Deep mutational scan, measured.
Amino acid sequence: HMTFVALYDYVASGETDLSFKKGERLQIVNNTEGDWALAHSLTTGRTGYIPSNYVAPSD
């Protein structure tokens, strides 16, 4: 899985969403939902949907 870094803070709007903080590292599990991606946080160990425009690929 590619690793991504959060560009902004995001507060989950539902139970299936994943909250994260700017700078948090995430792995995209499934990116077939258009503007949303299923992601796993390497920081918190949690998995949920995130807005895909809130993250960018990290080196």
Rank of each mutant, 00 (worst) to 15 (best):
L18I: 11
E15A: 11
N31V: 14
R25P: 08
S19M: 07
Y10V: 03
K22V: 07
T16C: 15
Q27D: 06
H40W: 08
L26D: 00
G23A: 03
L38N: 02
A39T: 02
N30K: 13
R25A: 09
S41W: 02
S13I: 14
S52A: 12
N31I: 14
A6K: 00
T43N: 09
T44V: 01
N30Y: 14
S41E: 01
A37Q: 12
I28K: 03
Y8M: 10
S52H: 09
R46P: 01
G14I: 07
G14M: 08
S13D: 08
E15N: 10
L18E: 03
S52G: 07
L7M: 08
F4G: 03
S19W: 04
D59T: 11
M2Q: 13
E24S: 00
Y8I: 06
V55E: 03
N53R: 13
S13C: 11
S41A: 03
E15D: 13
N30F: 14
K21T: 09
Y8N: 06
H1G: 14
F4V: 14
V5P: 01
A56I: 14
H1D: 10
G48L: 03
D17H: 14
H40S: 07
F4S: 04
S58D: 14
E33P: 10
A12M: 04
Y10W: 07
M2D: 09
L38S: 01
G34C: 08
H1A: 12
G14L: 09
Y10R: 04
N53P: 05
F20R: 15
I28A: 02
S41R: 01
Y10L: 02
V11K: 09
Y8F: 12
T43H: 08
L7C: 08
V5K: 03
L18R: 01
V55P: 04
S19I: 06
V11T: 12
D35H: 12
G48N: 01
L26K: 00
T3C: 13
V5F: 07
G34L: 07
E33T: 13
Q27C: 14
T44D: 04
S13N: 10
A6V: 11
I50W: 00
G48C: 03
S58N: 10
F20P: 00
L18F: 09
L26W: 02
L38F: 11
L26I: 10
G34N: 08
V5S: 03
S19V: 06
A6T: 06
K22P: 04
A56F: 11
W36N: 03
P51G: 01
F4I: 05
T44I: 01
L42P: 07
L18C: 05
I50R: 00
R25M: 15
F20N: 00
Q27P: 00
A12T: 04
T32L: 15
L42M: 09
S52P: 10
D35I: 12
